[in-house]
């Protein structure tokens, strides 16, 4: 059997922020009532994480869990684990009203890495997304679903100031090109002070 390939293997651009495709990434959509015990137990058993609070991403022992909507989270885990964990969770949730579906191949994921605390990364995203990216308005670990120019995206910025951005696979090239253009040297706007 062939190894799965990501949308833009090895794509990377270094401007005043470096954008790189993150390679294959396991992703599982979990829909259900987040307060249901069965759902929380299944999530804890599979990922070692609790249900995230609204708009947060939390790390577990076997992956991370990102809040998507009031009845949906996205589980991030190694690509090779996704099929097994889907089966495990489907079994654990048999008889429950919940949906567990492997969406690992439906998306592309990028990282945006800057030079300092992430002020430059926030600025590059602010060129494309109608979102207040000031650290006070979008703290580390908050998941924001929005648009980047004309494509739907979700992203969060981690404690190291690195942004992780997910888009649909078919628009990976478009999103990569957009971010690269925005990160081109000379386009530094100085929107956020870098302490």
């Amino acid at each position: 059997m062939s190894d799965p390939v990501s949308a833009l293997p090895g794509a990377r651009y270094t401007g005043y922020v470096t954008v790189a495709e993150a390679g294959v990434q396991g992703m599982i959509t979990l829909r259900g009532d987040p307060s249901a015990d069965a759902l929380r137990r299944a999530l804890r058993a599979a990922i070692g994480a609790d249900m995230p609070d609204r708009r947060r991403i939390v790390a577990g022992t076997a992956g991370a869990v990102a809040w998507m909507s009031p009845d949906e989270v996205l589980i991030l885990l190694p690509h090779g684990e996704a099929a097994r964990v889907v089966a495990q969770m489907q079994a654990a949730l048999a008889g429950e009203h919940a949906l567990v579906v492997d969406v690992s191949d439906a998306r592309a994921m990028f990282t945006l890495r800057g030079k300092g605390s992430g002020a430059d990364v926030r600025e590059v995203l602010a060129k494309l997304c109608p979102v207040d990216l000031a650290p006070a308005a979008l703290p580390a670990g908050e998941v924001r679903r929005t648009r980047a120019a004309q494509a739907a995206v979700a992203f969060w910025i981690d404690a190291a100031g690195v942004a992780h951005l997910i888009c649909f696979r078919s628009v990976a090239q478009y999103v990569f090109d957009l971010i690269s253009l925005s990160a081109r040297p000379g386009a530094e706007a100085g929107l956020f002070p870098d302490p």
């Binding site: 609204r54 109608p130 924001r144 679903r145 648009r147």
Partner: peptide, 12 residues
């Protein structure tokens, strides 16, 4: 009211 975001019209 579902996610608490003050959404720009272009997100809606």
């Amino acid at each position: 009211p579902c996610c608490g975001i003050k959404a720009d019209e272009t997100e809606l």
